[in-house]
């Protein structure tokens, strides 16, 4: 069967706005980075072609390895806390009644606060001199100072991220739970299922899709996190909380090493892309198999 199509080359003009838009917000910036990543730049817009030198340098740099390790540790930690915690909170939220909207609004609040404000709030909140949290912990007899001690800085950073983003997991998990028809719970009751069995065989499988999305979003977001740790600790004390993005900005804007910074950006970008792809493929394949 053939479809009658009108051939009119002026139709190309219709796609032009999209092309222009994509070019400006994606292609051109990305190609600029690619351009920098293969050249040495000097003052006065003088460039020399360097090939893969910056990529090799970045990949062999101990500084990059350390930042990457910190990044992986951070992402793994917050995922390990936020996903179970989010599911746990969603399970305890009411399924109907006036408290539903109250809970939802309370849960959504942290998500509505601008990221740098979150950083600023926690910075002040955790200050050992007059911050509520800092004073309280010290008041308990535990020495705590996130601006001096690397462990304390990490603790504060993780706590801040958990406070800021667990809500997202809660809301997604809650949506998944609400989509389960009541008959499943009734059938489970009749089958004599324990609370754990209900969770394991009904709630968890039914939440699978939304949890895939939650993990994916948190994985990518936490891997690219910049504003909050920048405002909270600025990467310190020392380099202890210098995550990949913070390190990148230090190289690009602090030291003005455009070449290595560009190479690092590309490696960073490919890592996020690859991780998301692998994760998504694994989860969806699992889905298709069961």
């Amino acid at each position: 069967m053939t479809l009658d199509k009108t051939v009119n080359n002026r139709a190309w003009f219709m796609v032009l706005p999209v092309l222009v838009l994509v070019a400006f917000n994606a292609v051109i910036p990305l190609m600029t980075v690619v351009n920098y990543s293969v050249q040495e730049s000097f003052a006065g817009n003088v460039f020399f072609f360097e090939g893969s030198k910056w990529f090799e340098q970045v990949l062999h740099s101990e500084r990059f390895h350390a930042a990457l390790l910190r990044q992986l540790a951070f992402t793994a930690t917050i995922l390990a806390i936020e996903i179970p915690l989010g599911v746990g909170i969603a399970l305890t939220m009411p399924r109907k009644g006036p408290w539903v909207s109250v809970c939802l609004v309370l849960m959504a609040l942290p998500l509505l606060i601008p990221w740098n404000v979150v950083g600023a709030i926690w910075n002040i909140f955790a200050l050992p001199s007059f911050g509520l949290l800092g004073r309280a912990i010290n008041g308990l007899g535990i020495s705590y100072n996130f601006t001096r001690d690397a462990g304390d800085a990490w603790f504060t950073l993780v706590l801040m991220d958990v406070w800021h983003w667990t809500s997202l997991v809660v809301l997604l998990a809650y949506a998944g739970l609400m989509a389960i028809p009541n008959a499943y719970y009734q059938a489970a009751k009749i089958d004599g299922a324990s609370r754990w069995a209900v969770f394991r065989y009904i709630q968890l499988p039914k939440m699978r899709r939304v949890l895939t999305i939650a993990v994916l979003l948190r994985l990518m977001d936490s891997f690219m996190i910049y504003t909050e740790p920048f405002v909270l600790t600025g990467g310190g004390p020392g380099n202890s909380t210098t995550l990949l993005s913070i390190d990148l900005v230090k190289i690009a804007l602090g030291q003005f090493d455009l070449g290595p910074a560009a190479a690092m950006s590309l490696i960073y970008f490919l890592m996020v892309l690859a991780m998301s792809w692998v994760f998504y493929t694994v989860m969806t394949r699992e889905e298709a198999r069961t």
């Binding site: 008959a183 499943y184 009734q186 499988p205």
Partner: peptide, 8 residues
Amino acid sequence: FQFPVVYD
């Protein structure tokens, strides 16, 4: 029940 309930 009205809608078949199976454990997926």
